[in-house]
């Protein structure tokens, strides 16, 4: 009798500990989600709020005085339109070129019979650890006349050892037998790459393409460094960065007044929020459809084989 009681007591203790843990874990996860999402949603609310009104504070998830003016100001600015064109262009073209070149290089070093495969791999792996640094690279681009052009976004970063290695790992996992019949039919290396390997590599191609595309979309430093004087080559993130630093400087003085635009007011803070939202919107909207590729990519590339 005593024994049964004891086990019951023990069980209920375990049960209590379990419940306590699950409650704690649930609270932790909910807090995590709130901390992740709240700041984004708050910026979203401010971006749809009237400028002078926003300065009063107290806006949380819903705009208090709804307006689309902040976005109107952002999209009417000539620089932003140009920046959007350049950003879309570099994302599309840069991703395409990077994908083709990385895939080709990965294909070459993944050929088991290639005479110089280990030398070529080493040549590229070294680039992951050693680099010339900011100033020598800037000097090189100047000498190559790449600075001040759109191509500085596309050409230098197209091949990256990391992306190449991710693709190589995937290609090495493709059974050789699949190429055998094509080889017997006399297919050359290029035909095998195009007809046999590439169709099988679609998942890894998608992953690398997404990584590269997000990188292009998010980059601003190259625009600032190589195209500071060329407003026609500006990018969205760089324009946003300029807005942020001007809002930062004015935030002390501009708290009181805003600029009236057709009856509504905008302030650096609401403009900044609107530009932030506009710049991140494409990624957030595409994110649900693409995220599985991101995860595949990390598990493919992260654990170095």
């Amino acid at each position: 009798m005593i024994n049964v009681n004891q086990t019951q007591e023990k069980r209920s203790k375990v049960f209590n500990a379990n419940t306590a843990f699950y409650v704690f874990n649930a609270i932790f996860m909910i807090a995590f989600v709130i901390i992740t999402l709240y700041p984004v949603l708050n910026t979203l609310a401010i971006s749809f709020n009237d400028g002078t009104d926003a300065v009063r504070g107290g806006i949380h998830l819903i705009p208090r005085k709804f307006t689309l003016h902040n976005f109107a100001v952002v999209f009417r600015s000539q620089n932003m339109i140009q920046a959007a064109i350049v950003t879309v262009g570099r994302t599309a073209l840069g991703t395409l070129i990077a994908l083709i070149l990385n895939a080709l290089l990965a294909y070459i070093v993944s050929r088991k019979d290639f005479l110089f495969k280990s030398e070529l791999s080493l040549f590229w792996v070294i680039t992951m650890y050693v680099n010339g640094g900011l100033i020598p690279v800037l000097l090189l681009y100047k000498n190559l006349s790449l600075t001040g052009t759109f191509w500085v976004y596309i050409i230098p970063g197209a091949v990256s050892a990391f992306n190449m290695l991710v693709m190589r790992t995937y290609m090495l996992g493709i059974p050789e037998e699949l190429e055998e019949s094509a080889k017997m039919d006399g297919a050359g290396y290029f035909t095998i790459f195009l007809k046999i390997i590439s169709p099988l590599c679609k998942p890894v191609y998608a992953t690398v393409a997404l990584f590269v595309a997000v990188g292009h979309w998010n980059s601003w430093f190259d625009a600032m460094l190589y195209n500071r004087m060329k407003i026609e080559n500006t990018t969205l993130q760089y324009e946003l960065m300029k807005l942020l630093s001007s809002a930062m400087q004015q935030s002390g003085t501009a708290t009181g007044g805003g600029n009236a635009v057709g009856g509504n007011t905008v302030t650096p803070i609401t403009i900044r929020s609107a530009a932030t939202i506009a710049t991140m919107a494409p990624i957030v909207l595409l994110y649900p459809f693409l995220q599985r590729y991101f995860v595949t990519g990390l598990t493919l590339g992260g654990v170095k084989g």
Partner: peptide, 23 residues
């Protein structure tokens, strides 16, 4: 999700969160 936002965007969000009227 935040991994795919640029540092610029994150900075903008951070400035909102830590501003004088921020959360």
């Amino acid at each position: 999700l935040p991994h795919f936002l640029s540092w610029i965007v994150v900075t903008g969000i951070l400035q909102d969160a830590l501003s004088s009227t921020g959360i």
